[in-house]
Simulated assay, not measured.
Amino acid sequence: MRFFTSGRLILGDCVAGFEKNFAGYCGAVFGVGVNSGTDALFLALKALEIGPGYEVITVSNTAIPTVAAIRAAGGVPVFVDVEPDTFLMDVTQVEAAISPRTRCILPVHLCGQAVDMAPLLAIAHDRGIPLVEDCAQAAGAIYHGRKVGSFGTIGAFSFYPTKVLGAFGDGGMMVTSDAALDRRLRRLRFYGIDDNYHAEEEGYNSRLDEIQAALLDARLTNLDREVDRRREIAAAYDAGLSGAGDIGLPAEREGRRHQYYLYTIRTSRRDALKAYLADCGIETRINYPTPIHLMRGYRFLGYAQGSLPVTERLSVEILSLPMYPQLTDAEVARVVAAVRSFFNA
């Protein structure tokens, strides 16, 4: 591989090529590769001047890095609840959450499905509030013909190894179609430097390396095929589990292509089902067992039990079934049979 002989293993030609290709895939003009998806969110917020005391509207039903990035930038997360069937931001609650200190709206495209972007974009435009998309779980997801990451001021992606487009280490990227923001994001990821090792502002060290970029660029060519396979598996789960009992299946809204990073069901018998499937040799996961607003580390935000009822209800009902492109039809059928056996027992 050429990066081993180039002598440049960080931010070289492979990174530049992948940045261009991934941005184009998303429908954006510019891509800026960084160290992780968390850094992608953090630097996006810094580029938009989110600082101490400024509020960012988001959700508690997400991975901790969403909120950690807001706090690292100095911002204050303001939570709205989520929809009970998609687990995504309930956009009807956003307008009421806006205050004079609101500086950003940060929707999370959770599990691989896009948030309802049209009303959010209208609010952001009318209020003059930047919108940053958390696309960590949703590379390749589509909303009314456009891929996620292309709607907001900046889209932030993670290439953690378990993601649908995953590296063999860590990595992330920000995409934007704003040339001025592209320049600033590149500066912020490299100590605030523009040219001649002169820092124009205080910056950070967050750079994607050549090896990960080359691997990700190669995997990008297969991303849509992998998404298609995930959707085939999800359709098999839908067909096999429909009417199985006390179970709610993932909802895919009209006009959206869910890429099924996770296939997450709901049931009031979640813990018993998880234990039963484990006895059958089937691994499942709970994403996420404790909403962020109720975690000890974020009690200082002031949210009490009951403040986000849908989010809190989901946390005791959700269970993610096996989902990856290498699953065989026989393995999917085995999972279906085990789940149905549990509810028919």
Rank of each mutant, 00 (worst) to 15 (best):
E95V: 13
A44F: 04
F190R: 13
L88G: 05
R127A: 11
I282P: 05
L327G: 04
G74S: 06
I98H: 07
P77G: 07
A40C: 07
S206K: 03
R334C: 11
E252K: 09
T311D: 06
L314G: 01
D271Y: 07
L321I: 07
V175K: 00
S268L: 10
P130Q: 07
A278V: 06
A333K: 12
G75V: 08
P77E: 05
R8Q: 14
K20A: 14
A239N: 05
Y263H: 11
R187N: 00
V339M: 09
A236R: 15
D195M: 07
G306I: 09
Y197M: 11
H258A: 01
Q93E: 15
R186C: 11
F159R: 03
S150Y: 06
D39Y: 11
L88M: 12
D246A: 15
L294N: 06
L9D: 12
L273D: 02
S206R: 01
D39G: 04
R266I: 06
G306Q: 08
T5H: 14
L273P: 02
G203L: 04
F18Q: 01
S6V: 11
F18T: 00
C111G: 01
A278Q: 13
V332W: 00
C26P: 00
F157G: 03
G281T: 05
L88S: 11
D13I: 09
L277I: 10
A337C: 10
N287H: 14
R183A: 08
K20R: 15
D116Q: 12
L262T: 13
D329M: 03
R225E: 14
L294K: 08
G37L: 06
P77C: 10
A72M: 14
I57K: 04
A251C: 14
Q305R: 13
F159W: 03
E331K: 05
G297I: 07
A236L: 15
A234V: 02
E232A: 15
T290N: 10
V316M: 10
A136C: 15
S36W: 03
N196R: 13
D195Y: 10
R2G: 10
I57H: 03
P130K: 08
V227D: 00
T38L: 13
N35W: 03
A239E: 12
I50E: 01
D182W: 08
L215N: 11
A345W: 05
E133L: 06
A136H: 09
L223P: 02
S341K: 11
A72Y: 08
E317K: 13
A96L: 06
L9G: 08
K46R: 15
S150T: 04
I286M: 09
G53C: 09
R257M: 10
G51R: 15
V316R: 12
R101K: 14
C104I: 08
E83K: 12
E317Y: 04
